[in-house]
């Protein structure tokens, strides 16, 4: 999976403040089409916030983010249209509890992309197949386990035919025995060539499919290296410290 090529997502000198506190400090990174980038770091490092800036869920005060040629921070950009092309998977799944699984998948296709109901449902079923949850189509989120919910959430994002997928700690809220089923779906997605930014602590996943690893600490990007380099010989002390802590268990 060595992907080089035109940059799909370009983050340039982005800074963000919450009031007086600066949570993102001058971050720069480029993600090419088809690349899988893992973002890791201690909690409070700003990695979740940074990823939410990419699809405009969080505003930022300085710098630019360009996704497929469209500037996220530009006031003239129609964010809903842009967001429809980027998929996001949340730590707490955020399925819509009042809708059935299949409706969770079809709703945005119909309301945002304007597809007709039949196409949307067929699409939804195809994706449920892909994540291995075909029989649960008519169930409600509350009836599924965490791992199942997260797989549905991935399918929901894929239903919009996104050009890139953003993952915000997708397995952090899962019981240990369910983490693997979600990671398997993500690995398959990566092998299919999806452009992915994944905020996670799962280093096994990183070693398996990530092209690059970005290490963030206290709002800054401390290291940005190809996977092998990062795990083989991390340059910064902070990264070494972090790795030693999480690779222990």
């Amino acid at each position: 999976m060595n992907a080089t090529g035109p940059a799909m997502i370009t983050i340039s000198n982005v800074s963000k403040w919450y009031g007086k506190i600066q949570v993102i400090k001058n971050c720069t990174a480029k993600i090419a089409k088809g690349e899988v980038v893992v973002v890791c770091g201690p909690s409070g490092s700003g990695k979740s916030t940074l990823i939410k800036c990419v699809n405009g869920l969080e505003p930022f005060e300085q710098g630019t983010i360009i996704v497929d040629g469209i500037s996220v921070g530009d006031p003239k950009t129609k964010l809903p249209k842009l967001r429809a092309r980027i998929g996001m998977v949340f730590q707490h799944f955020e399925l819509f509890p009042h809708l059935s699984v299949i409706r969770n998948l079809s709703l945005a296709q119909v309301k945002v992309l304007g597809r007709d109901e039949t196409t949307a449902l067929a699409n939804g079923m195809r994706l449920l197949d892909r994540v291995g949850l075909h029989e649960h189509a008519d169930k409600f989120p509350g009836q599924l386990s965490g791992g199942q919910q997260q797989r549905v959430a991935i399918a929901r994002a894929l239903a919009m035919d996104p050009i890139a997928m953003l993952f915000d700690e997708p397995t952090s809220a899962l019981d240990p025995e369910m983490i693997q089923e979600v990671l398997d779906v993500m690995v398959a997605l990566a092998k299919d060539g999806m452009t992915m930014i994944v905020v996670t602590h799962e280093m096994g996943f990183a070693r398996k499919v990530a092209n690059r690893v970005i290490f963030m600490d206290k709002g800054e990007i401390v290291e940005d290296a190809p996977t092998a380099d990062f795990f083989g010989k991390p340059r910064s002390e902070r990264a070494q410290l972090f790795l030693s802590k999480i690779l222990q268990h």
Binding site: P80, K81, M88, H92, K111, V112, R156, A157
Partner: peptide
């Protein structure tokens, strides 16, 4: 209604109006 629901709706590209009518108000 948790902020996560709002963000999930927005992440799918729903406008304020759509996310209110389909996701927030029903809940």
């Amino acid at each position: 209604i948790s902020r996560g629901q709002v963000q999930a709706a927005q992440a799918l590209g729903m406008t304020y109006k759509t996310s209110m009518i389909e996701i927030i108000l029903p809940q």
